[in-house]
């Protein structure tokens, strides 16, 4: 689980000037001489092709989406689907999408996701610290209790939560989302933070204690600042989970009378209905706006996102 991506320990090991290790797994007879190079070149082709196809499969749908968001309805109907947009500065679709409530949805998502993130990070780090650094009976069992939460399917807690929020008159506010998001993010965060704290030498906290710090003080002044990096990674991973959530957002915000609470994902899903399936441009522009937010975050922080996601793989 603590599996960060490492650079391959590959060709670096060979001395300069020595032939690089064969890229194809077959052992090369050393006497092959001049024939060797073209033969190896030939073998590489299928793999180069496979890589190229892979990139096309990964990237083309997104490029198609971006191009589509700039096309007019006429272009969608009358021109081949891979045609480039005729007017590259046609942002009407975006304007239309924006006017139909994307801004409101974005604001709702921010209002639900960021308070939850703050709660998750602070509570989760504190609990991770207590479970890993503090000494008490039953902390192993408690960690397991938290860990079990990773396995609970969201569908299972949905109905009781819905009636509980209804009875406490929280329905119609942003609180159901914040509460639910905070709780569902905690198991993984506690688990990851405990793992990170395990790697910190205990002597550090012992030294702080000898210097007269209380445990709370060690947490605030030693542990929390030291974990900034880990906290950021965990927060980032949770951000993607919460931002992309559909099930809770749909259940708690899309009911009659509080559509004004809809998050980005719910809004996008309703968007389809609002325009009917035929209004291509605005729908694509709305998808684009939604994708763009995660894209920008990912562009700047991709290594961290990949590491964090791999570490939090249990979430599935």
């Amino acid at each position: 689980m603590s599996a960060p991506t490492r650079p391959p320990a590959g060709p670096a090991a060979t001395a300069p000037g020595a032939p690089p290790p064969a890229a194809t797994p077959e052992a090369q007879p050393p006497a092959a001489g001049r024939r060797r190079r073209p033969a190896r070149h030939w073998r590489k082709w299928p793999l180069v092709l496979a890589t190229a196809i892979l990139l096309v499969i990964e990237i083309y749908p997104l490029i198609w989406l971006l191009l589509g968001s700039l096309k007019t309805q006429q272009e969608f109907m009358n021109r081949p689907t891979w045609a480039l947009p005729q007017d590259w500065t046609n942002f009407d679709n975006y304007r239309e999408a924006w006017d139909s409530g994307v801004a409101r949805n974005l604001l709702n998502s921010v209002m639900a996701v960021f308070p939850s993130l703050a709660i998750i990070v602070v509570f989760g780090t504190a609990a991770g610290f207590a479970l890993e650094v503090m000494v008490f009976k039953g902390r192993g069992a408690l960690l397991l209790v938290f860990l079990a939460g990773i396995m609970i399917p969201s569908q299972m807690i949905l109905l009781p939560l819905f009636s509980a929020y209804f009875k406490t008159h929280l329905t119609g506010t942003v609180w159901p989302l914040i509460l639910t998001y905070s709780a569902t993010g905690l198991p993984l965060t506690v688990f990851m933070m405990a793992t990170y704290f395990r790697a910190v030498p205990r002597e550090l906290f012992e030294a702080a204690t000898i210097d007269g710090a209380s445990a709370l003080r060690s947490f605030r002044s030693v542990a929390f600042p030291m974990m900034t990096n880990a906290i950021f990674t965990v927060g980032l991973v949770q951000f993607f989970f919460l931002w992309n959530d559909l099930l809770f957002a749909m259940t708690f915000t899309s009911g009659a009378g509080h559509a004004e609470l809809a998050t980005v994902q719910v809004g996008l899903l309703n968007f389809q209905g609002r325009f009917g399936a035929v209004q291509y441009g605005p729908t694509m522009a709305a998808i684009c706006v939604n994708v763009l937010i995660t894209l920008v975050l990912y562009l700047f922080l991709n290594q961290r996102v990949m590491k964090g996601m791999a570490a939090g793989a249990v979430k599935g």
Binding site: I119, A126, F136, F146, S182, V190, E206, A215, L216
Partner: peptide, 24 residues
């Protein structure tokens, strides 16, 4: 110091309560 019950409760309770009430 590192086994102080009150501190453990202060650090652990928020997460544990949220998690128990909303998930367990």
């Amino acid at each position: 110091v590192l086994g102080d019950r009150k501190t453990i409760a202060v650090l652990l309770a928020p997460a544990l309560v949220t998690y128990s009430v909303v998930m367990l």
